[in-house]
Simulated scan of single mutants.
Amino acid sequence: MTIDDREREVRRRIAAHELYTDHAPGLERLEEERIRGKELADAYNRTAPRDQPGRADILRELFGTLGERVWVEPPLHVAYGNYTHLGDDVYANFGLTLVDDTDVFIGNRVMFAPHVTITTTGHPVHPELRTDGSQFSAPVHIEDDVWIGTGATILPGVTIGRGSVIGAGSIVTANVPPMTVAAGTPARILRTITDADREWTYRPPRTLTADDI
Rank of each mutant, 00 (worst) to 15 (best):
Y202L: 14
T207G: 09
T150M: 15
I160T: 09
T84L: 05
P114V: 07
T117K: 11
L96I: 07
E9W: 00
E33L: 11
G54K: 11
A24P: 10
T185C: 14
A15E: 05
V176I: 15
A187H: 03
V172A: 08
D211W: 04
T117W: 00
T102C: 15
A113C: 13
E128M: 10
F112A: 15
F105L: 04
D145G: 08
D212A: 12
F94R: 15
D100L: 03
D145T: 11
A152I: 05
I148K: 06
T102L: 08
E7W: 09
R6K: 15
F63S: 14
I154P: 14
N93L: 08
P139A: 01
H17A: 15
H17M: 10
L208N: 09
R162L: 01
Y20A: 07
G54L: 07
A168V: 09
P204I: 02
L19E: 00
D211P: 06
T209D: 00
R109Q: 03
D144K: 10
M179W: 01
E128A: 13
R29H: 11
Y20V: 07
Y202P: 06
I3M: 04
G149M: 10
V72Y: 10
A92D: 03
L27A: 02
T119G: 11
Y44W: 13
D89N: 15
R162P: 06
R60T: 13
M1V: 09
D42E: 11
T131K: 15
P49R: 07
G151C: 15
A15I: 02
L27I: 03
L19A: 09
E31H: 07
R203H: 05
L62C: 09
R203V: 13
A183M: 07
R13W: 02
H123T: 04
I166P: 10
E61C: 11
D57V: 12
L129N: 13
R203S: 09
D144V: 10
R109L: 02
P139H: 03
A174M: 12
S170P: 11
T121C: 07
L96D: 05
P74S: 06
L76V: 08
I58W: 06
T121R: 05
I189V: 11
T21K: 04
D144S: 07
L66D: 08
D144H: 13
I58H: 08
V72D: 06
T201Y: 02
A48M: 09
G151M: 14
D51F: 10
A41V: 10
R130E: 01
N82S: 13
S137W: 03
G163C: 01
K38T: 05
H115L: 13
V146S: 03
I3C: 03
V158G: 04
V158W: 00
V10Y: 03
F63N: 09
D22W: 02
R11H: 04
T102N: 05
N108R: 15
P75M: 14
A56G: 12
N45E: 01
G54R: 11
V116E: 04
P75I: 14
